[in-house]
């Protein structure tokens, strides 16, 4: 497969992940409520989809794996393309200047990978009904995920970890969003600048939206 075709896959998987991150945040906004009801009801609703949810989860894992494998392969190609580096390297700026986010996609991506693993282990596979995290929904027993989340974010160390991870998400998407359109050949001269600005705003909105959840829980509960 050529580098151009690989980038089509990077772009598609990346944009799919952006779609996931947006929906994930919309769902998580229920955490800004001062009661546990809205969030637990949302989680309960998701789980009531049963096997459909499982299909979605497997699909999401596949998209993540594709994105990570192709992203890291691309990085490997580039590292071997310059076996001997420069003693001095300076950015030259220009009309679409490079920045820390565009120059460090593999680093921000790898940090996100570590974060996603931690996050899934902590909440998706964390203590559930058997461990006593129980509430009732429509007369049924349900997992009290809200309590687990609140307990986690009462610890300032976890707040710090999540806040830091979200800053890396912002860095990744600040460049990633417009880059995906460029990789897919969907940009034209007059759209590039707009897409770069929109990507930056979207990245900032997602970062802020996620980041204040642990901060809010730490102070408000």
């Amino acid at each position: 497969m050529t580098t151009v075709a690989k980038k089509f896959i990077m772009a598609l998987s990346g944009l799919a992940l952006v779609g996931f991150v947006i929906t994930h945040l919309l769902g998580n906004l229920t955490l800004y409520s001062h009661t546990d009801e809205p969030f637990n009801a949302y989680a309960f609703k998701l789980h009531s989809f049963g096997s459909l949810l499982l299909v979605a989860e497997v699909g999401l894992v596949a998209i993540f794996l594709t994105h990570i494998v192709y992203g890291l392969t691309a990085k490997k190609t580039s590292l071997s393309a310059r076996p001997k580096g420069y003693r001095v390297w300076r950015s030259k700026g220009g009309e679409t200047p490079s920045n820390i986010s565009s120059r460090n996609m593999a680093i921000s991506g790898s940090i996100l990978l570590a974060f996603v693993l931690l996050h899934v282990w902590q909440f998706r596979f964390g203590p559930a009904i058997e461990a006593g995290y129980v509430t009732t929904m429509h007369g049924e027993q349900a997992r009290d995920l809200h309590r687990l989340i609140v307990e986690t974010f009462k610890n300032p160390a976890w707040v710090a970890v999540y806040v830091a991870a979200m800053l890396f998400l912002g860095l990744h998407l600040r460049h990633g969003f417009w880059s995906a359109f460029q990789s897919a050949g969907l940009t034209r001269h007059n759209t590039t600048v707009k897409l770069r600005i929109f990507g930056g705003l979207l990245a900032a909105a997602l970062t802020v939206g996620f980041l204040f959840i642990p901060v809010y829980i730490y102070f408000a509960f």
Binding site: T3, A81, G93
Partner: peptide, 17 residues
């Protein structure tokens, strides 16, 4: 281009500058 051993474009934009 790939066979020559060039790297993989990530739209950084230093080329243009």
């Amino acid at each position: 281009m790939d066979a020559e051993g060039f790297g993989n474009c990530t739209n950084i934009g230093e080329c243009r500058a």
